[in-house]
């Protein structure tokens, strides 16, 4: 089968998931999402192949591919590599041109990004090298309560109280959580406290770059409704609702950038 049009792909290989988005001319045409494996080349290709398969395309029919995420450094299938900071900016701007601030919470890091009307990065800050405030942190907490990661936010939202969590270090927070459970605190109240503790840490990141409406929440953790709620309270903002899976925003931005590069290099008019 041969399809008419120009196709551009973005592949975002993160620490926990690999994502892909294919644009047909200017529209989202197909997406792919798989858990990341040890081999980041393979993970990226797996995500890309899922999108290609659902689009009925072959890789050679793609005009341009941009790789992003930590796996961008080993993405032989990509024409260019761009950082996830630039890609999240472009992705959010593609969906909502009025967005000026992005919170990106991924598997191993968290970013505060300020952008302009064109989706260009104006300023950004990232968490330090520890896992506090990341998807990995929440994964560890889900393990402590023996619940699914995807259910964590809903459980936190059912809380009647907020049990303060003083530790931000993943290891210390885990032992503090176990102590709180032993003290008889309700799991939902502890989880609520954990979400607010992370949100307050994120507010610290924004003290370095500032906040301007509209605010967008991207990355795998953005699927967590409890986290969204806690961040809205900590930053005193309303987060705009994404039309697509927020975990795909980096790959979407990479696809938008792929289209721009193709145009610049005369591969697409």
């Amino acid at each position: 089968m041969s399809l008419s049009g120009n196709y551009f792909a973005g592949v975002d290989v993160g620490s926990l998931a690999a994502k892909s988005v294919i644009l047909k001319d200017g529209d989202i045409f197909a997406t792919g999402l798989v858990p990341s494996g040890v081999n980041s080349v393979e993970s990226g290709l797996n995500a890309l192949n899922i999108a290609l398969e659902s689009a009925g395309l072959k890789q050679e029919e793609l005009t341009y591919i941009v790789g992003t995420g930590y796996g961008r450094v080993s993405a032989p299938y990509a024409n260019k590599a761009v950082t996830e900071i630039t890609c999240h900016a472009k992705g959010a701007n593609y969906l909502h041109p009025t967005v000026r601030t992005i919170i990106d919470m991924g598997g191993q890091d968290c970013k505060a990004i300020r952008i302009d009307q064109d989706g260009a990065v104006v300023d950004f800050a990232m968490n330090d090298k520890c896992a506090a405030g990341t998807g990995r942190f929440l994964e560890v907490m889900a393990g402590v309560f023996k619940v699914e990661l995807k259910d964590l936010g809903a459980i936190a939202l059912s809380a009647t109280d907020t049990v303060p969590m003083s530790s931000t270090c993943t290891v210390f927070a885990e032992s503090e959580t176990i102590s709180l459970v032993a003290r008889g605190e309700k799991p939902e109240n502890i989880l609520n406290g954990i979400h607010h503790s992370i949100a307050n840490r994120i507010a610290g990141l924004f003290s370095r770059v500032g906040i301007e409406s509209d605010v967008f929440f991207s990355g795998g953790v953005a699927k967590n409704s409890g986290m969204k709620n806690a961040i809205e309270q900590a930053l005193k903002v309303t987060i705009v609702k994404p039309e697509i899976d927020p975990q795909l925003i980096g790959a979407l931005g990479a696809a938008v950038i792929a289209r721009n590069f193709a145009k610049k290099e005369g591969l697409w008019a």
């Binding site: 950082t83 996830e84 900071i85 630039t86 260009a120 990065v121 950004f124 990232m126 090298k129």
Partner: peptide
């Protein structure tokens, strides 16, 4: 050396930001 890649992402994004600003 443990923060090498995290530093690289920040610096690379900063260089991209400057390049895009210059192009605009």
């Amino acid at each position: 050396g443990s923060d090498y890649e995290a530093m690289k992402t920040r610096v690379e994004a900063f260089v991209e930001m400057i390049k895009i600003k210059s192009e605009i």
